[in-house]
Design a protein around this nucleic acid. Structure first.
Lengths: 230, 230
DNA sequence: CCGAGCCTATCGATCGATCGATCGGTCGTC
DNA sequence: GACGACCGATCGATCGATCGATAGGCTCGG
């Protein structure tokens, strides 16, 4: 697929910001990675910080949109949360750079941009909070600290972006299913009910990110024995 | 307690590196926070990167030492892991800046320093892996993916440093106990056995970090209603 | 007890390098 | 000939780091 320079700048920025951090990435690094001069970058972006803010906002909006679709019409709190977990894990495993930028570079934003980004993040986390609270009310989840538990589970699921490698033996579906089980167990959910709709979640991630997602670890199956860490 | 300039530089660096990132912190920021000129900094440190590496190495060595003491002589895998979780959570909640530097700034290290730091981290995580594996062998833990589960639980517990505020209603002991319960549940541990030795873990953290740790949220109890996020 | 010599702590000034960003252009293409 | 894509050159600012200098305290021979 031939991509325009604008997309190349975006892609290079995502990768570099994720790997070296916003302040660790220079304009010239960005230009080199995008095969442009540093001057040409400014035809496709505002300031470096505006580029970061746009990347973060787009990523969060995609996640938020996918999450809304993944829970749309789902009544059972267990399935709502299960789908949220599956979507979150698949997103973080298949788009680790984007999600790591969102999770780790908030500190580099100006106060105004930070307000927008944190607001979007809070909107997303509200979906989790509502599902957990509904499950408690329905008597299927059991925890004395719903807020703390939600933060703990979110951190657990986001962590996938920091260690998952598609070269391991686990498929995305296996990974998502395993995390859904961990979450259900942590919430003291004995009868887990319906399983998360992994196929639907995979499709949603494919659509909002406009990428191919394979249920298997990678197009050419590897024989690597274990999950790896960077 | 009167601290020397060396300690002030260290403390300022930890705070600034945690809040703004290594590359986001300038020598002059550091000097201002330590009440010194930028030239004077170099009487107490090598290069900026050596300072970062030293901070990370010291933090990891403290955690590693405390973890060894927290599991010393404990035979039951459930209690071994429970103590590791409690220690990890108390450390991350009471020393969030140090742990966030360790968790988030590895990318700023030179390859040689990175090797040392990642080696220390791996040594620490090995303690978790051994406790989990022992529990599986003993039939008290149940998971089909011990490696993935370990990574998930570690990320969950480390996340505490990103959101916990001592101004919330939760005491450190309550927080640690809750996380230990989450971990036991996630491992399918129906009979959790002996509870983690929270007092011992608190004492260990106090000793290796040379700080006061209160079982209550803060010396002067606040009335704040909820956990907060930065 | 003196003061020469030395050590530690600290500084203002400044180094060369790199930073993010901008300028005035040159290409093709329609 | 207007326009979008792109670049070499360069801007002022800031970066990490080093310089020589100063002030105060400690040591030790006389």
């Amino acid at each position: 697929m031939v991509v325009g320079s604008r997309d190349k700048v975006r892609a290079a920025a995502v990768k570099l910001f994720a790997d070296k951090g916003f302040h660790g990435t220079g304009i010239r690094d960005l230009a080199q990675a995008a095969n442009l001069s540093s001057a040409s970058l400014y035809h496709y972006m505002g300031t470096k910080e505006e580029l970061l803010a746009e990347i973060m906002r787009e990523s969060l909006e995609r996640l938020l949109e996918a999450a809304a679709l993944a829970t749309d019409g789902v009544a059972d709190p267990r399935l709502r949360l299960g789908n949220l977990v599956a979507l979150h894990v698949i997103t973080h495993a298949s788009q680790p750079s984007e999600t790591r930028v969102v999770d780790n570079e908030v500190h580099a934003l100006s106060p105004a941009a930070k307000k927008t980004i944190v607001g979007l993040r809070d909107s997303y986390e509200l979906l989790w909070a509502e599902a957990i609270d509904a499950g408690i009310v329905a008597g299927v989840f059991h925890t004395g600290q719903p807020v703390v538990t939600r933060l703990a589970l979110l951190e657990m699921c986001s962590g996938v972006a920091r260690w998952y490698s598609p070269r391991g033996t686990l498929t995305l579906d296996q990974l998502a299913a395993h995390y859904a089980e961990l979450v259900m167990r942590a919430l003291g959910c004995l009868d887990v009910g319906e399983q998360p709709d992994l196929k639907h979640c995979r499709t949603l991630v494919s659509k909002v990110w406009n990428v191919r997602i394979y249920p298997t670890p990678s197009p050419t199956t590897t024989l690597n024995g274990d999950a790896s860490r960077p």
